[in-house]
Amino acid sequence: MSDTNLVNWYIKSQPVYKRLANKVESFLIEYFDMNSIGYHIVTSRAKTIESVRGKGNSGKYNDPINQIQDFAGIRIITYVEDEISLIQKVIEDNFDIDVENSSNKSEALGIDKVGYQSVHYIARLKQDRLRLPEYKQYEGKCFEIQIRTILQHAWAEIEHDRNYKFSGKLPDELSRRFKILAGVLELADKEFNSISNQIDDISASVDEGTKTGKLDIPISSTTLSQFLLTRFKTVIETMGVPSHDSEGVLVEELNAFGITTLSELESIIPEDIEKFYIASSNGSLHEWGMVRSLMLLHDFRKYGEIVKSDEPGDWCNSSSHIDTEFELEYYKKHNVDWNELAQKYNYCFDLELESGL
């Protein structure tokens, strides 16, 4: 086929391949989100006309229209390697895979080489979907799906896509350094994956420990979040998932309060706290209000000593806005003196309700 014929054909066909790529991208994002499958980003594209012209002129194809298989392409970027295998199962379950033309570039490298790593699928929509009228236009059309981690993607972008400086034959010394860098990225990828798995293991142990009462577990941002999610599962499912203490502020406050393990935190949780959380949440929960309330309710003066060196207003949070009679009575029951907190420890509260305290 001549270059002109290929390009003219693709000018007419490109909109269909764009729609196909968008359909697959949308399906995958929705599937991943609905099934809580981790990923970083999913993107799609149809090949540019210039790219198709270049492939047609490469001399690799006798019949480029039928032999070029990536007119439409979808790329899935994951955070860690273990997410790739989960996504592979989704791809294999939901599309017809051309096994002969699909590949795993990592396996192709063997054990003694480093470099480009990615899983490539050549796929088509399944017949049950093609029978739907809106999908008839995609009959016989294949597409490529690439799956790689963020670090594999970074390597691929540098080596293949974005920077001509790194293409072709490099001087030996530069080529060696380039390959060493690929090895470093591969090791980092595996280490991120290992750390991610260990964090998951910690969360699982906290979940089990909370259910069984075995809570001799040091407090960290990870263990604290999982403890709250398990311990107050019913309330959180009703009111919303609490935001994560990503900076470790609550861990520092708890440690200063003398609480270093989950069992110690469990020991200061008062009766009927779930009702208090619902009354004080204003429709949603967050970790700061939940945990700080526990410290205030247990010993407001001790908590006041922790925060008194800060500027007034620094410690406003959900525990300092009293909106219901139940909250007011609950704080009174636990002898929390808000005026003393404000005057002696610079702890702010909702001044509109000061007279009620």
Rank of each mutant, 00 (worst) to 15 (best):
R45S: 06
N335W: 02
I11S: 10
M34C: 03
A154Y: 06
H153V: 13
Y330L: 06
H40E: 14
P242S: 09
S103I: 00
F232G: 03
V7W: 01
K179V: 12
D201H: 02
L86R: 11
T212C: 06
N57H: 00
K233F: 01
R45G: 03
E327M: 09
I29K: 15
S194I: 07
L170F: 09
I29S: 10
P242M: 10
H321V: 14
F71G: 13
G110V: 00
T324R: 01
T223P: 02
H160M: 07
G59P: 03
Y17C: 11
I236H: 08
E50K: 11
G304N: 02
I76N: 07
D201C: 05
E50L: 10
V24M: 09
P270L: 03
I195F: 05
I236V: 13
Y347W: 09
E266G: 11
F257T: 12
P218Y: 03
H298E: 08
G209A: 06
E83K: 02
I145C: 00
S106T: 01
E208K: 07
I147C: 04
G56Y: 01
S118V: 15
D33S: 09
D128S: 14
V80M: 05
Y17P: 08
H160Q: 10
L130T: 06
K23H: 11
S26T: 12
V251Y: 03
E237S: 09
S293H: 08
E159K: 05
Q343V: 04
I87L: 07
V235E: 14
D33L: 09
L341R: 01
E208S: 08
Q67A: 12
T43H: 03
S280P: 10
S58I: 00
R129N: 11
S220D: 03
T238G: 10
G168N: 08
Y277L: 15
Y330Q: 05
I65H: 02
Y79G: 13
S44G: 07
E144R: 01
P242A: 09
S293P: 04
D3T: 05
I273S: 03
D96L: 14
L229W: 10
E271C: 08
L132E: 12
L250N: 09
I150A: 14
F192V: 04
V251P: 06
K344G: 05
Y116N: 07
H40Y: 15
E107R: 08
I199E: 08
F300D: 14
S205L: 11
D350C: 11
D172V: 03
M34E: 12
Y164E: 15
L228M: 08
L130M: 03
E274C: 10
S355E: 13
K169C: 00
F192Q: 14
A156V: 14
S194R: 13
G313T: 04
L20S: 04
I111A: 00
F143C: 02
F166A: 06
E352W: 05
D33F: 05
Y135H: 11
L86I: 02
